[in-house]
Write a protein that binds this DNA or RNA. Structure first.
Length: 210
DNA sequence: ACAATGATAGTT
DNA sequence: ACTATCATTGTA
């Protein structure tokens, strides 16, 4: 029996994360996404493959969750089906990318906080070369930075994580031992700041704040 | 320590 | 209509 897809193709259908997989609590999905791949087909650019190294969970009944006060125009995608995106603008200048979790009607999501990029996006190459202090592994080390690097904005809000959308997720290539993942408190929030709902890959140099 | 920068949600 | 807030980041 042979597969009908090219094994050299950057797209491997068997490993793509499907909506059903995301139909679980955000506190389960957030650590499960560590080590998974985020793929982004840049508009007028290359396909960028990356590894998720830091996530945070936002849950129903969680005062820090954007869905806490009910559905609105901004957060509507959080109440949509799992395996879709929720993208919002923060501080007027950065965007943040989330993976929507749990069934439609339940407002919960996982914030993607940091990535390790396999390749440097072309629009950042010149900038990286000009600045000697700039480090390649820090290009996507933060929720705002990764959206800038992968050209993610509100146009990608509420889209299905799927190759047709130009952005999708793939399962881990190798299992990760739980001891290699650190669980700690979330960053940049004042409400429910004590909830230990942030996870990151201990060995990664691309974590926003180790 | 703080400015940049704009949408949003809550309050008059 | 006004205002405080904001799941951030780069520079000083």
């Amino acid at each position: 029996m042979t597969n009908n897809f090219d094994k050299d193709s950057p797209i491997s259908p068997k490993s793509i994360i499907q909506p059903d997989w995301c139909d679980r609590p955000s506190t389960t999905i957030a650590p499960a996404l560590i080590g998974c791949q985020l793929l982004r087909q840049l508009p007028n650019g290359p396909l960028i493959r990356s590894t998720i190294v830091e996530t945070e969970a936002y849950a129903p009944g969680d005062p820090a969750c954007h869905a806490y006060s009910g559905k609105s125009k901004r957060n509507a995608a959080m109440f949509g089906p799992p395996g879709y995106s929720y993208v919002y603008l923060i501080y007027g200048m950065y965007h943040c990318l989330n993976v929507v979790t749990e069934a439609a009607g339940i407002g919960s999501a996982v914030l993607i906080r940091a990535l390790e990029l396999d390749t440097i996006p072309p629009q950042l190459e010149a900038k990286l070369e000009a600045k000697q202090t700039a480090k390649p592994h820090r290009i996507a080390a933060g929720p705002g930075k990764l959206c800038r690097a992968l050209e993610i904005n509100r146009d990608l809000d509420g889209v299905h994580f799927h190759p047709d959308s130009g952005i999708w997720l793939e399962h881990r290539l190798e299992p990760i031992a739980p001891s290699h993942i650190v669980q700690t408190t979330r960053i940049g929030i004042t409400k429910a700041a004590e909830a230990p709902w942030r996870w990151y890959l201990k060995a990664s140099k691309s974590v926003s704040k180790p």
